[in-house]
Design a protein around this nucleic acid. Structure first.
Length: 323
DNA sequence: AACAACCTCAACCGCTCCCCA
DNA sequence: GTGGGGAGCGGTTGAGGTTGT
């Protein structure tokens, strides 16, 4: 159905990127800026589809990417945000600018999921009310707790947003492209890239180019250096319309309460006239409304055991306790 | 040392969204 | 209003690495 994937084009290369390809891509973007990905393969001669180029750039070559171990703080952020936003990795990544959505997604799937599962099973050992990890409470209690949590979350969000409104240091607004980041040195927008390229070359000289992994390691190491952390490009993802605006400080405030609970965006906007929060989300209520309706179903239907795994997402309680 | 099992993460796939003619 | 095309996103895959036996 639909048009064929661009990668189906004859002659398009797949698989790991070589250092040469990285250099070509970085050089091109350095000159033209990211965006218009369709034109990238055509103008560079890269035998890669536009999607592949974009992916390589956003997940690997883009400035400001931090690689390696996630800090405890980052873990907490991810856990909270995942509970709040669901598996909207790009949105989550916008609050952790140094990490890519792919990175966060991988980390969630490989580490945090297991960690949370383990901790939850450790905590209760057996399923309660069909909800592993939840305390043994009645449906009525559960409902009241949910309402309380929603109220708490709403208050916290209101506080966070009001803080944000007053906030004069909005240097860092979340955004995929980091358009809102204060860039210390605009002139050196792509200085990192030259650096990166030279590192790539250095790494390439040291290691066999046959090994795609080698360059990854090289780049990974270089990315851990401080050079990349401040050099967020204003062109990061220029076409990304991102109005998911809430400052990290506000987010911290939002996440700092013990029993955070997701609220619908409707509720969010009801509590404040500031409609910039998440207003760009196209499916604003899906993540939260659906589980809540499922909860209603469950509350009404004694035998309603379906979708309970999904509903766990709306009980964000106690993620803080995991640490 | 050899093999198997498991883990990690870069990259791909398929879908949706959004813009524009 | 609508259809086509590009961009972006989330889920999934699989090659390579690591750990256990």
């Amino acid at each position: 159905m639909g048009r064929p994937p661009c990668c189906d084009k004859m002659g398009m290369k797949k698989g790991p990127w070589t250092p040469e390809e990285d250099i070509i891509l970085v050089s091109y973007i350095q000159e033209h800026g990211p965006g218009n990905w369709r034109a990238v393969p055509a103008n560079t001669g890269l035998l890669r589809c536009s999607k592949s180029c974009r992916l390589r750039w956003t997940n690997y070559l883009r400035p400001g990417i931090k690689r390696g171990n996630f800090t405890e703080h980052e873990e907490k952020m991810i856990i909270h945000l995942q509970a709040l936003l669901g598996n909207r990795w790009a949105a989550i990544a916008s609050y952790i600018p140094e990490r890519t959505d792919n990175d966060i997604k991988n980390y969630w799937n490989t580490h945090l999921k297991k960690k949370l599962n383990k901790l939850q099973t450790d905590l209760d050992g057996h399923s309660r009310n069909g909800f592993p990890g939840l305390p043994p409470i009645s449906k009525g209690q559960w409902e009241r707790r949910l309402q309380t949590d929603i109220h708490t979350a709403r208050q916290a969000l209101c506080e966070a947003l009001s803080l944000e409104n007053q906030d004069h240091h909005q240097d860092l607004k979340p955004s995929n492209g980091f358009q809102s980041l204060k860039i210390p040195n605009q002139a050196s927008t792509y200085a990192w890239s030259t650096d990166n390229v030279s590192r790539l070359l250095a790494g390439w000289m040291r290691n066999s180019p046959k090994n795609g992994r080698t360059i990854s390691e090289t780049t990974r190491n270089s990315s851990n250096s401080p050079i990349s952390t401040d050099s967020t490009s204003s062109e990061g993802t220029p076409s990304a319309p991102n109005t998911d605006i809430i400052s990290p400080e506000a987010l911290e405030s939002l996440l700092s309460f013990d029993h955070s609970t997701p609220m619908s965006l409707e509720e969010t906007t009801n509590c404040t006239s500031n409609t910039t929060f998440f207003q760009a989300e196209n499916k604003p209520n899906l993540e939260n409304k659906i589980p809540i309706s499922m909860l209603e179903k469950w509350l009404l239907d004694e035998a309603g055991a379906q979708g309970q795994d999904d509903m766990i997402d709306i009980s964000l309680d106690d993620t803080d306790e995991l640490f």
